[in-house]
Design a binder for these strands. Structure first.
Lengths: 210, 210
DNA sequence: ATGTTATGTTAACGGTGTTAACATGGTTTA
DNA sequence: TAAACCATGTTAACACCGTTAACATAACAT
């Protein structure tokens, strides 16, 4: 079928002239459509159809398409953060095991929501104001907190020297996994174990707590 | 100005009805426009204006927009490969130094051509035929050859177990660098040394040649 | 020279993001 | 309660975009 499932499916019916909570409806419609069609194929018009509203309605709530997608990104980062909290819950604070779990959750989120993940990072969206604070900072903070618990370090430079390689590794793994790069280079590849091993290797190079 | 510099600038003039080499002209026009406006803002129409040709002309040479961009991607991978060859030239074959140089060249290319790099990986383009061979395989082969020279390994699984972590690391570093993620998490970050150290750490875990 | 073919043009199609002008109806206030 | 206000919806229009069909040109093969 030409139209996306969601769009073709039940267009929202309204009894009132006003929608009720169009802002939230549009965010979740956009989320669903990005999921189904990918970030670049997402259209404002489809989001309107799915929310059962005219093409011009969104502009009462969002400055433009980019602004709406920014909200989708924020929801994505928050969900990723919740996943990380859930994964680390139960494991010993400051343990290598827990740091690894956070990293693997990062990758798991990318696999669970490839299109949203691509939107969160891939797009030129964030580049607009280079000095603006990153939307995903609270998500990253979870890793930082764990490394602080693990190393007792509070020097930011030293902290980042540990956090960034881990982030880099899991981010690279996420990207190369969701666009099938690994598989197309070598179909028989089992990347799961590779990631765990590499993470452990990086972790083993950390300074021990005093 | 509203229009991109390239598009606003000298529209190609032709004395003949036929263009001469429209195919190549379109590829280089597209490359330039992706560079300037980013992969998502690139339009077929702009490429036509830049090549001095009507909107319908490209369809004699490319099936659609995606097909044209695929050629841009191919050029990108070939240029990256040339950069890697140039960087490893002069360094001892199979040395850690040379492997590191290849990885750093990967990142350097991403920094030199962020938009092209994003196009090469970020897009949903490649996802179409999942079992199709990757366009960038010859580029990746350079790393593989070097690891073979370094370890004397010929078992593909073992080879990939070494190559993939390195690739993952430099790919993650490239992505997070060109979308300013590092800088927005911690403005004072110096990621260059971090990458070198991490690469060396991974390399140090390799098996020695027999 | 003449017919075929590769490669260009123009015109049209439906779709997209966005804005301006107008409509509706819930909320505030006289 | 009635009137004014204002947030939030609609319709209509704009320029742009990707793509196709019908037609034009000219290089080339016969």
């Amino acid at each position: 079928m030409n139209k996306s499932d969601s769009v073709a499916a039940a267009k929202q019916q309204r009894d009132h002239y006003h929608h009720g909570d169009l802002r939230e409806s549009l965010i979740s419609a956009a989320t669903q459509l990005v999921r189904e069609k990918g970030p670049d194929k997402f259209s404002m018009a489809d989001a309107c159809k799915l929310a059962g509203v005219s093409k011009a309605a969104p502009y009462r709530h969002f400055a433009n398409k980019e602004d709406l997608l920014k909200s989708v990104i924020a929801v994505g980062f928050e969900e990723m953060r919740q996943d990380m909290l859930a994964a680390s819950n139960g494991l010993v604070s400051g343990s290598n095991q827990r740091i690894t779990a956070i990293g693997l959750t990062y990758i798991a989120f990318a696999i669970k929501e490839p299109a949203i993940f691509k939107l969160m990072f891939g797009n030129s969206m964030n580049i607009k104001e280079p000095d603006s604070e990153m939307i995903g900072k609270p998500t990253f903070q979870i890793l930082l907190d764990e490394i602080i618990a693990r190393t007792q370090l509070h020097d930011v430079d030293k902290l980042m020297a540990i956090a960034f390689p881990l982030w880099t590794l899991v981010h690279g793994a996420s990207m190369l996994t969701i666009d099938d790069s690994y598989k197309r280079i070598y179909p028989g590849s089992n990347t799961d174990q590779m990631i765990i091993d590499s993470t452990e290797l990086l972790l083993s190079s950390f300074p021990e707590p005093v």
